[in-house]
Design a protein around this nucleic acid. Structure first.
Lengths: 179, 179
DNA sequence: CAAGACATGTAACTGGTTACATGATTCG
DNA sequence: CGAATCATGTAACCAGTTACATGTCTTG
């Protein structure tokens, strides 16, 4: 389970509320881990019980208290322990590949593939823009940003391969007649 | 949810017992969908209740009956319906990327990356061997095998990109001193 | 005769999703 | 004053994992 660890990594960079974390998971960390705010609040509660994070409470009237979470020493230890254990291979589950394998309706799959390709292109653009902005010189990435840079590179390579796959599929399935 | 649909695709090709399906999910279909036998039995029961598959029962003494499942017309309809709906983007969740992003222990990550690279190489070899054996001429793939071929191509591209990523990571993190 | 393949399951648990619910503050 | 953003949750459900459980048949 790595949601906990993704949160720990994020808190290492900067203390945050559940809401902040949810936004980070929509952006940079979301490149390789998605999480809803409900899931994040649930997980933070468990992590606090485990002593991996500690909350600073800011009472508010009329609504729930604001809680800002910071990583604890125990949390840092847990992160080190987690880093040391071998990562399991990602369980790959692709609805798209299942459809493709079945190839029940070529027209529908071509359509789906085009949609998918457009999505990859859009993400690739975002990632490349982000890379250009934050790491204009890849050979001079700062020590403490190296991890984030390499993770982003993974995103870029992954989107490029996605596009290449879509192109192969379209090349084989598209009839010359339509567009 | 696509386990049901992965099963339907598999049964379209050939009727099978739960045990057979579990083995198929360890092999070809397992390139893009993993499932344990427990999960498969549970899902088959639900699918039978939904009328998507029908079981031929072969009674056996002293142990549970053998059930061979075949896809029904309702199952084929469901598969068509599923193919027509747009595929959701895969939820990407990578323990490895979380670790990399945190970069808490460079030595541990280098080790993990090497392990990961070896795994990608091994899979790539298997996929390429399979491609060579089943589809020696990519331009002459039979109509009804096109889906399987394109899915396998996805696997190949994905492993290649995995290797490329590992190489970039190792290139940036490996000190010249070790190996 | 033992090991491994064939064959089917149950039970407890965990992580994640979807739907629902509430309320304050800020900015155009 | 209304929309967006900030902020925190609960409840019901579902899919998937892990551990446990059983028994036959085939082959070396």
């Amino acid at each position: 389970m790595a949601l906990e660890h993704a949160i720990l990594v994020s808190l290492t960079e900067q203390a945050a509320t559940g809401y902040d974390l949810a936004r980070r998971f929509d952006a940079s960390i979301g490149y390789f881990w998605r999480a809803s705010h409900q899931q994040i609040y649930k997980t933070l509660a468990r992590m606090e019980a485990d002593g991996w994070v500690s909350a600073t409470i800011e009472p508010r009237e009329g609504t729930a208290d604001k809680k800002t979470y910071a990583i604890t020493d125990a949390g840092r230890e847990e992160l080190t322990r987690f880093t040391a254990e071998p990562s399991p291979r990602e369980a790959l589950r692709s609805d798209f590949a299942v459809k493709l394998r079945g190839l029940a309706d070529v027209t529908a799959i071509v359509e789906d593939t085009r949609r998918r390709r457009a999505d990859h292109v859009e993400r690739l653009d975002r990632y490349e823009a982000s890379a250009k902005r934050h790491y204009p010189d890849p050979d001079a990435v700062e020590e403490r940003e190296r991890g984030a840079y390499l993770a982003l590179r993974g995103g870029i390579l992954s989107e490029r391969m996605g596009i290449a796959w879509c192109d192969e599929i379209l090349d084989q399935l598209e009839t010359r007649s339509d567009r």
